[in-house]
Design a protein around this nucleic acid. Structure first.
Lengths: 131, 131
DNA sequence: CCTCATAGGCACCAAAAGGTGTGTACTTGC
DNA sequence: GCAAGTACACACCTTTTGGTGCCTATGAGG
């Protein structure tokens, strides 16, 4: 019989490390930042401009987290004024494809989401009026 | 010349509907729930069991949000005790592939993330001791 | 001389996410 | 007929997330 010691890693198991991995990337800032870096390595300022709506604090925080987990690398040129560049690591690169697929999905299908939302909300309003 | 009225939809633009679309699915619960439903349609209770660590409240809330945006459909059989089934809509189905790819990425690469994190934290501790 | 850009740190506060417990409306068991 | 179990929704409260403003030091440009 098969060994019980290796319960296949699954993102559905909250105690599994695979879940932690998913949680690291499953967020709007990590996804956008990784996608942006997939296009090209960038500096802090360039990322701020590229990723609309991100605050300086969230950007720094997310970059640190991604660096800590080895998805991006940070090149500090140790000069003044500071010059620091971020880029996808090899590991991060293996993720880029799936991320970009999600971006594209959003960019292609948002009209259908908008329409569905409008329909749903209209139905809600109707049932509120007729309880 | 090209019309200025259509600035290509981009997830990087915070005012673009595509961004809203991405934010809807860029979260740990939406991702896990959609992945679970990609395997098979399920009832509330079955989803609770499948998606480890989700609370009943978050599950309901996320399901509502996904239903509102047309990614899943809710079949209420209107009987007692209640019997409600959730399944991916056609639109939701077009998303399943990318989601499952992310799940698999996490399940395959989490050891590298763990190792990188350990290395990073060790380096942090070293520089704390030598300031 | 004064301001801006560069890459952050730190503190404070508002907003949102999320967990726990309770309620409903019906079943089955005793 | 009353207790317990099920499938779901909802209200309350805590924790986390995220935004804003102010700070560093330096060199460039007005």
């Amino acid at each position: 019989m098969a060994k019980r010691s290796k319960p296949e890693p699954s993102v559905f198991d909250e105690t599994c490390s695979a879940r932690h991995a998913l949680e690291l990337i499953a967020g709007k800032w990590p996804m956008l930042i990784l996608s942006a870096l997939a296009e090209s390595p960038m500096r802090h300022g360039a990322l701020m401009r590229r990723v609309g709506g991100v605050s300086q604090k969230m950007l720094t925080q997310t970059l640190r987290d991604l660096e800590r987990n080895g998805l991006i690398t940070r090149q500090d040129h140790q000069c003044v004024p500071p010059h620091v560049e971020y880029e996808l690591s090899a590991l991060g690169g293996t993720l880029a494809g799936a991320l970009i697929e999600l971006d594209r999905w959003a960019e292609h299908n948002f009209p259908q989401l908008d329409a569905a939302r409008e329909r749903f909300d209209a139905a809600q309003r109707r049932s509120k009026r007729r309880p």
